[in-house]
């Protein structure tokens, strides 16, 4: 049973997005709610900026769904740092319960799948799911200090500076989540820290929208 189908078809009723300057230089810039010119978001460290972006994405998603904080029953979120600290700290800003998840690149899909299951079953009415990452904090977490004069191989990937959130409810929009397929952990022996995409590609899970 890798795939589950949601009978009541939970809907995505609002989204909130924010992204850094490099991300917004391309097509993405036209679609985000806020494009940052300063990748520190006015904070003293990149970790704090990541937390603030996440908090912003959550409140923006609630606002875009035309809800208030009291309407939201739960937050399901995660990020890339140790002890999913950005999500946990962002959750301090809100009054609803928080469920922390970690799935690296799949955190968003994972939290949406869990939220859909809760909403579909009727336990909760509105759940906010969110995730965020920051290039500079991820570099420190997984790779080398920023100022180290090493070369990045051409196939290396760039961790997104940004955050996104969405509100999932049973009715209220035409975008429905119909099914979720959970990926298995498949290790094909990729050890390159600069190429994590290929390490994760065999594990892929799918959310049917």
């Amino acid at each position: 049973m890798q795939t589950i189908f949601f009978e009541n078809k939970p809907r995505i009723i609002g989204t909130g997005t924010i992204a850094g300057p490099k991300e917004c230089a391309g097509v993405v810039g036209k679609f985000v709610d806020t494009a940052l010119a300063d990748d520190r978001f006015g904070e003293s460290t990149y970790e704090k900026a990541e937390c603030k972006m996440l908090s912003y994405a959550i409140s923006q998603a609630i606002k875009n769904a035309r809800l208030t904080e009291t309407d939201v029953d739960m937050l399901i979120a995660g990020d890339l740092l140790n002890q999913i600290i950005s999500a946990s700290f962002a959750a301090r800003d809100f009054t609803f319960p928080f469920l922390g998840v970690y799935g690296a690149c799949s955190t968003m899909a994972e939290s949406m799948a869990i939220a859909s299951a809760f909403v579909n079953a009727g336990y909760y009415r509105h759940i906010v799911t969110a995730t965020g990452s920051h290039f500079s904090s991820a570099e420190r977490q997984y790779r080398y200090p920023l100022e180290l004069g090493n070369t990045r191989p051409p196939q290396s990937q760039w961790t997104v500076t940004g955050a996104g959130g969405c509100v999932i409810a049973n009715t209220g929009s035409n975008i429905a989540i119909t099914s979720a397929t959970f990926g298995k952990v498949v290790d094909f022996g990729i050890t390159d820290v600069n190429n994590m995409g290929s390490a994760m590609a065999p594990d892929i899970g799918i959310i049917g929208i």
């Binding site: 420190r140 200090p145 920023l146 100022e147 180290l148 004069g149 090493n150 990045r152």
Partner: peptide, 29 residues
């Protein structure tokens, strides 16, 4: 220095300046 290193590769890592960079960069970070 990291901008020089990005283009120069081993050219800026091998000399003693590269070693200084590898100590100073985590200190800043």
């Amino acid at each position: 220095y990291d901008r020089i290193g990005k283009n120069a590769g081993a050219g800026s890592i091998v000399p003693i300046t590269g070693f200084a960079n590898s100590v100073a960069s985590p200190a800043i970070e």
